[in-house]
Design a protein around this nucleic acid. Sequence first.
DNA 1: TATGAATGAGGGTTCATTCAT
DNA 2: GATGAATGAACCCTCATTCAT
Lengths: 202, 202, 202, 202
Amino acid sequence: MNSLNSDNSKIAENKQLKKENLLSSAYNLFIRKGVQFTSIDEITENAGVAKGTFYLYFEDKWDIYEKVIIERSHLLFEEALIYVNNKNIKDFKDRIINIIDYIIESFIKNKELLKFIGKNLSLGIYNKALLDEYDNSYTDIKEMLETEFKEYNKKEKYVKEKLFMVIELTSSTIYDSVLNDYPISINDYKEILFNEIQSIIK
Amino acid sequence: MNSLNSDNSKIAENKQLKKENLLSSAYNLFIRKGVQFTSIDEITENAGVAKGTFYLYFEDKWDIYEKVIIERSHLLFEEALIYVNNKNIKDFKDRIINIIDYIIESFIKNKELLKFIGKNLSLGIYNKALLDEYDNSYTDIKEMLETEFKEYNKKEKYVKEKLFMVIELTSSTIYDSVLNDYPISINDYKEILFNEIQSIIK
Amino acid sequence: MNSLNSDNSKIAENKQLKKENLLSSAYNLFIRKGVQFTSIDEITENAGVAKGTFYLYFEDKWDIYEKVIIERSHLLFEEALIYVNNKNIKDFKDRIINIIDYIIESFIKNKELLKFIGKNLSLGIYNKALLDEYDNSYTDIKEMLETEFKEYNKKEKYVKEKLFMVIELTSSTIYDSVLNDYPISINDYKEILFNEIQSIIK
Amino acid sequence: MNSLNSDNSKIAENKQLKKENLLSSAYNLFIRKGVQFTSIDEITENAGVAKGTFYLYFEDKWDIYEKVIIERSHLLFEEALIYVNNKNIKDFKDRIINIIDYIIESFIKNKELLKFIGKNLSLGIYNKALLDEYDNSYTDIKEMLETEFKEYNKKEKYVKEKLFMVIELTSSTIYDSVLNDYPISINDYKEILFNEIQSIIK
DNA sequence: TATGAATGAGGGTTCATTCAT
DNA sequence: GATGAATGAACCCTCATTCAT
């Protein structure tokens, strides 16, 4: 019985590994060549599994695409959170600004990542992940930020909505600024953006 | 000489017609089936021209896709401008709010259009260059709005940038609200958004 | 273990069969219609495999074209060798003359083959490398003839080169003679050619 | 009447010019990209004429291909002849060797030309040109060489044939030697080749 | 004669998906 | 579960040729 259990867990582990290989293989190809020009063939070859194996873990390319987006956006927020915690920043307004700043700096360092996540860096996608029977470890960050916001500004009626606006405003406007210096360079733009964000969360 | 000219203009007219047929055929298919699932075959068949003719006017599917996006989002701004002019709205703040409102209402009526234009609404007034190769009748909406903005708030340093922010904030946030009622319904969201816009343009 | 091996070999056999089907299908079409006017569509249909299967075995039409040329010209030398061996011809000079004669007669009987192989006859024994990736049963005809040549004329410095000249002279000159009787009929030309060959190998 | 004549001759000149433009445009493209990958579109564009104009002067691509081959081979022989005449070489054997040498050196300097003319550098093609109602200025060289040969070796029965062999042997064997140093370098090969040629013409 | 816009058959190639092993 | 050979529909695109001007 015991050996059976350990066998089972070993198999489960192995499956998880295959899935993760596929996800990271897909991620690497997506940011290098774009989703459009990445084939499932390449994803499986890069992951070291057979072509047919892909279909044991994902529906099709758009399925894995969505999962990769969620995984990578989550990772970014997680890193940003660790960063502000390590810097021991307490004030919510400062925390938000620093989280955004961390994310912007990540994109500046990795422009391919920005191109890939593009205008999909949104808390909205977490919601979708939550609604699906998806790994619910992804909802923690969003709820944590909402709770912090509520404590910071107790009269604020539109906590969810304003947080959403902050993220959307950031991701949609930095896109052109970082990639094309348009309408102004990202460093100049930061000043305007951070002012707006403070104004939104009051 | 005269006959030559009229011959040439007749040919040029015919070419313009073919190009417009292709653009509107592509538009109809794109919003009905999505770009991904629209083939050039279908675009040409729908436009009533031969397959090869497509390549006389466009590089490939992504070329016409870009042109259609720009054309349609520009059209939206043009309609919105006519709307506020007809309503005889003079105050710049009110003009902007009403332009945005007109656009949002258009998207509510035509959700496929929103899905298609997506978060690229800004292309409509920021990429005029790409279109006027073949149609220089385009009024420069962007410059007109900037001028109005400057007159409205003479101390504003960041005219261009703030206008850009308004448009990006709008297109990125209404997307989820209109299509998924997330984070709140579009009607509730309008109140928040319009407040933000007023705050941005002061 | 055994069943696994037999499975594998069965699959390998099947693959080899598919490849051979494609090669012989291509050969038949090439000599009937010319390379230019043979489509991959036809090759696969004729071979009884799906269109996509072609690309599992060959790069493109020029890849299979090369392989077919080499295969067929090699085959010709192989047959010629069997012929002179069966006739029990020992003298090297006579062996060469008879090999060439056998090949010329084959071309007279099958002019389409001559048109196809054209002036590339030497590929049959000079490009073995390209073929034996997948079929190492090929005897090295070239080395065998060189050895015979060396024994026949021990003082000869240019064994390789003269053999090459014999083959090239043959294939380049008989082409017009067989197909167009130019500059004279092939039967008359043989006399001159064989004299030259004897003179070359001394 | 006069003005009509001069008009006519001007038109005829113009036509000849167009034809020559097309021929040289085709030549340049053929040696740069290969016949296979040169389109009539490119030929006409390069020649500065309209697409349809091509069909006023040539049947199709293979027609112009043949004409270009003939033109360029002829040019090569012509240059070689001028070269031996300038060097005032009288002995036929030396003249032939020097003609061949000149041609080989031309190919070494312009390997693209060798690839293009390939194994088609033949007097045989002149014959075809002669048989067609083609410009008969192309037959002079061949007949001149035959006459010289006859005078040099009055007993020779196979004048035409041996001249043919010399050209064919040369063009087929230098091809690999110049382009691939195979089976030996062209400089080493020259020695063997020239010996063979002397032996052929006695 | 000369043009070049228009054609559309047909080419090569890709690739998601299946299924026997 | 895992494989990867095989499939074949569907794709984009080229290009020789035509013909109204």
